[in-house]
Design a protein around this nucleic acid. Sequence first.
DNA 1: CTATGCCCCGAACAATGA
DNA 2: TCATTGTTCGGGGCATAG
Length: 482
Amino acid sequence: MCYSCKLIAYAKPKCVTSPNMTEFKFFFYPMASERSSYPVKIVLNKQRISSQWSDEEIAVEEDSQPQPTDVEQRAETEPILIKDEETAEDVWKTDLQEELRITGEESGSKSGKPPSFEQRHFDEDFITQPNISPEESVEHYPNSDGPEEPGTSRLTSEVFSTEQHRPAEDEDSLELVMVKDEKKEELGQTTALAGLDQFVMDETDGQLWTSVDPGRHTDGHPDFSFHATEEYSQNISIFPSQSVLPSVPTMTDDVWPLLPSSIGKPHADMLSAAAHMKKHVRTLADETRQQMPEGQSSEMLNSNNDGNSLALQPSQHQHRASEATVRMSECMTGSNMATTSTFSGYSLSRSSFNMVKRMRTQWRSGGTTERRFSCTFCGKSFQRFSQLKVHLRSHTGEKPYTCEQCGRSFTKQCNLIRHAVVHSGEKPYECTQCGKCFTQRSSMKSHQRTHIGESPVSQHVVPAYPGDPHTSLMLSQTKWSK
DNA sequence: CTATGCCCCGAACAATGA
DNA sequence: TCATTGTTCGGGGCATAG
């Protein structure tokens, strides 16, 4: 959102124009007044505390917007279910270009088909915010002088969720189309097709789409989430030359009256405003990059945008989505994922999807490398994908195996089996020297080391477990070192 | 190849005794 | 209070079955 040009912007994938090209729409919505900035509350930043809002925002919020709204509550409680349109096998067959194509396909809604829950949430997730429809953005702006019914929510979960809402966008918003072009040689053609209101982008990497943590501020103002990439921001070219101007699609008169007077109909101010938004694109993308932990931005952010979910979770997880969940935004910010369970772990599926594909590529090209699967979270490598899959649970907080007696969950089934002795009281491991029993073998072995300690002479000569440096180290560092 | 189970180490925490 | 010991669990390596 720009407080200078009074525009609110966000991007949304539009459709697939060719196997190598995906269109994205930039929607710019006018702010009717300074006070109209208050709808940024609609950003649904659930993590931000109220004290972070300005006094004015709080005042407005208290006056006219009972909280939390139903939508906010729903967003907090309902899991994000991402529809998987590809089988795992298909995923393996795709290459990076296909991935881009998929990104466009999955983002495109099926016209004439009611939005499914998954699709709706996907779109919400992708758009991230602002979660306000163009129609409402006009209706509820205080400047519109429209009487606002008490209790009327400014929010809607259906906003922009499907193509069915597009007419409203076309009517009330200034629509800019961004064309994601994968091949530079097609740039000229794309430019010709794009016209004035299209951004021609160049792509050099398959991991491009990012999103901004909605919980951030920009210049002291609430931040609208934003989807773009640093590559895009670097190469973004709005109205590169005046020569493009003749190709400007004519904006309908239905649109222009809704824009702030400073923007008006297509003229120099419009170009200035667009150039201004370009600056925002770049700024926000840079901020996004800086915010992300190093080495994670591409994977993590990219995962938030589409619905290609690779079912990395075991089947049990489908019954325990509420248990093995993770808040995607927290993944993006690197906070503790395991301790906060709000959204379904499926929100990470895209990340896994990209990661797995990358790993497979690495495996194919790497040949006979010892460690073929690397975790993009921590960089740890594994010989087998199944090992990595289990390892990923430590990052996602997924614990698919739950004890029926105490409800505690575990990342591995063997851990659950091992845990069962806690309830049964069974101590199957007995010390051969003293007869004391233990629940775990490692506990018994640890105990047996104490027996070895009873013989200070032998502890250096005959370790409890020959070849076990840990034993020798323990002995040298404990009582015998005194 | 994946799924599964076993084994292991290490960390965190609690209980206990000097 | 501190060191020691025991308990519990997380997580990696590996073997094996399918």
